[in-house]
Design a protein around this nucleic acid. Structure first.
Lengths: 254, 254
DNA sequence: TAAATTTGTCTATTGTTCTAGACAATCAAA
DNA sequence: TTTGATTGTCTAGAACAATAGACAAATTTA
């Protein structure tokens, strides 16, 4: 028989208790840790529940306040400030903005940087061009309601999509840019999903707090003829998004 | 101008330096931190590179040795012990064992626990049965070469697949069990991928070290008529596996 | 207003993590 | 065998994390 909570807090693990508690609260907030008004249980209650001192809980709360997830009001209580995870669909034809459009209003995509450079081995293989052939690289950042959602790095065959950066700057959308450059439709050929701790670049770009997790997708998009048109690596803030891998569609054929 | 390494070690972040360094080494080992013989740079060099004391590096190495990633030999050096990430395909018809069969030999699936219980709201909705209707729950663990790869929890409609636990115990495979129970073929309808820090249960089941990351997939499988047959949540050790989301196949229809 | 509830601040103590230095033990190569 | 490079062990102190208790400040409720 265990006296344990369902998820125990680990001591001497190299991760401070306040950080474990902060991470766990962040995770459980969407699952109903707060009441219907977004109010959190009082610090004493949380301390008892996690089996730690009130001050430790306070440190965790301070971190989440700093992060914008919680808001503390003296005498009143602590309240949820943040929003839920957005669902990011991964389907054969999903476009970034379409997928999230129904869930949030303030959706914004930015071009941080762009360059034409010789293709690395990986990018060349994915795009089906020779290693060293000129490719366009786009560094993009997307935000929903002022919170960074994802940070992308995409490569395109410069011979075919030389004007990509220029066009993206106007349209703020890959889909629209492809259309402007004569590619009416495109498809997702493959996506590889991994997860890791956020590194310094992620912390900066996605405004995460240390110890946060990023979901990384590496994808190849192809045109109707199956020719690769885009190779991209995208990093998502794992606490703001979940990837929805939908039905391949193969089940309904025939 | 920064004097920083590309990825900085963060102090006062709530994550101990030795753990940050262990995580980073684990991540960078595949990217060529060790030489061609799998030998790591000496402790003093690593300490200088990370800007910490040699003892701190030693703590990180000790954690990775414990984890089976490294092996230290007095007088000789420290060597890479672990293997690469396995690729786990997510396709409409992927079966667990098929997908990994080519990459490793010692593939094993175990039934840890099973029960018949009333369906929770989520499981009921996914399986298309009434809340509280009897469902079979299977707790499974899969290993490759003696290392735990994933920990799964699946639900099945008890009315249709009452003998699931029994059958799985014999066959060691969901696919084979379905076949034995009269379901020749089935398809993956949807998969939701999230990532989070490993909790106490993950640490135990997947033999991870604290601070490790798990990839969580929640999937619904359906039969040829589109009726749900399995609802499952699977937790993967993020440092041992990567999820490969292949083409949905929708592009070739019509 | 008075009482109860809740967050905010302070001090002190203990345990864990990180640094520092010295030296032993093992291995490989000169 | 001797030397140099490398991992293993020990001690001690500084920096950080967690506990404990007391009380102040703000808000809501009776």
């Amino acid at each position: 028989m265990t006296t344990a909570n369902e998820t125990m807090i680990e001591r001497r693990s190299g991760v401070a208790l306040w950080r474990q508690i902060a991470d766990r609260m962040r995770r459980e907030i969407s699952a109903g840790l707060a009441d219907e008004n977004g109010r959190m249980p009082p610090e004493v209650v949380l301390a008892a529940r996690f089996g730690v001192n009130r001050h430790t809980v306070r440190t965790a709360i301070a971190a989440l306040v700093q992060e914008g997830v919680l808001r503390a009001e003296q005498g009143r209580g602590t309240f949820v400030e943040g929003r839920q995870r957005l669902a990011y669909p991964i389907r054969s034809r999903t476009r970034f903005s379409e997928g999230l459009a129904g869930q949030t209003c303030g959706l914004k995509a930015m071009l941080l940087d762009d360059a034409v450079e010789p293709a690395s081995g990986e990018a060349a293989a994915a795009l089906g061009v020779d290693t060293g052939a000129p490719v366009v690289r786009l560094e993009t950042l997307s935000e929903a309601d002022g919170r960074p959602i994802s940070r992308g790095r995409s490569w395109f065959d410069a011979a075919r999509f030389g004007g990509m950066a220029e066009t993206f700057r106007h349209t703020g959308s890959i889909t629209a840019s492809f259309k402007a450059l004569g590619l009416a439709d495109y498809f997702r050929r493959s996506t590889v999903v991994t997860a890791r701790h956020a590194d310094a670049a992620d912390l900066r770009d996605l405004r995460l707090s240390p110890g946060a997790i990023v979901l990384v997708t590496v994808a190849v998009n192809v045109d109707a003829q199956g020719r690769p048109v885009q190779y991209s690596e995208t990093r998502f803030a794992a606490d703001r998004i979940e990837l929805h891998v939908a039905d391949g569609g193969g089940t309904t054929a025939g």
